[in-house]
Nucleic acid binder design. Structure first.
Lengths: 132, 132
DNA sequence: CCTTTGGTTGACGTTAACGTAAACGTTAGG
DNA sequence: CCTAACGTTTACGTTAACGTCAACCAAAGG
């Protein structure tokens, strides 16, 4: 029942990325596809990691930052020291993300206010907007 | 009382950016410092815009995306058509940001869970963590 | 007058994150 | 057997967002 494996083409289809991107991520040790002969096979784990990568990118994290975070999600066997470092790094990232969320909340509020302003200005000029 | 003007050095100090960055942003038409002779002078408006730029960058927006958003915050005189477009673009961005916030919320929850897991693992190994 | 201090304009260098093209292997169908 | 379809490696190209360096100007202080 090794049907959980996917070829590179299927991966590209599923996650809307190019082969180049997947090979690049492998080279950067973000994912670890196995080989069947020459060809790459992507496991469920690879897919989970890819999801996190794409998510991380949306938040403006660099691939290197993401790579470190990813380790947190697969810390079965590591030595305790390494694990502790990873753990602390993740805490930092968490603070990062919570801070970003705060900021984002504020920015959204600001933007909404501006939009309201735009509303009235456009209304004053007699422009009808598409009802949301 | 034109004391609201700041030199490039003061700007760098205040916002922790390099002169190069500010000149670059000017070249990209993100900010519009005036000149006193040769030297750039940054107004309150420039500062507000810079703040938004730096904020936007933290959320992973490109400078080009930011440039377009910035227009929303200074739409005094524009023609109505242009204004409408800007307005709609801003709505899109807003949806973007709210979506990002959602995602971020989820990601934070996930990460917290993982950290809890790390907690117990480390505890099992007898590692004492710095009390938060 | 001379030298800091702070600013200027090019112009080339750099890093991240891929894109793109060349040249090749390997099944599967007609 | 030929040729698509799908995959591979190697290597150079590209874009964004600045960094870095050289050569220069100008006001202010000793």
């Amino acid at each position: 029942m090794t049907d959980s494996m996917m070829t590179i083409g299927q991966m590209c289809e599923s996650y809307d990325v190019t082969p180049r991107t997947l090979r690049f991520y492998e080279a950067k040790e973000l994912i670890f596809p196995t080989r069947e002969g020459q060809k790459r096979l992507f496991s469920k784990s690879d897919r989970a990691r890819l999801k996190l990568i794409l998510q991380g990118k949306r938040f403006g994290f660099s691939l290197e930052e993401i790579r470190q975070l990813l380790n947190l999600y697969s810390l079965g066997d590591q030595q305790t020291t390494q694990l502790t470092k990873t753990y602390e790094l993740a805490q930092e990232r968490l603070r990062d993300m919570e801070e970003k969320r705060e900021e984002l909340t504020g920015a959204i509020a600001d933007l909404k206010e501006q939009l309201q302003w735009g509303d009235t200005v456009l209304a004053d000029r007699g422009v009808k907007l598409a009802a949301e």
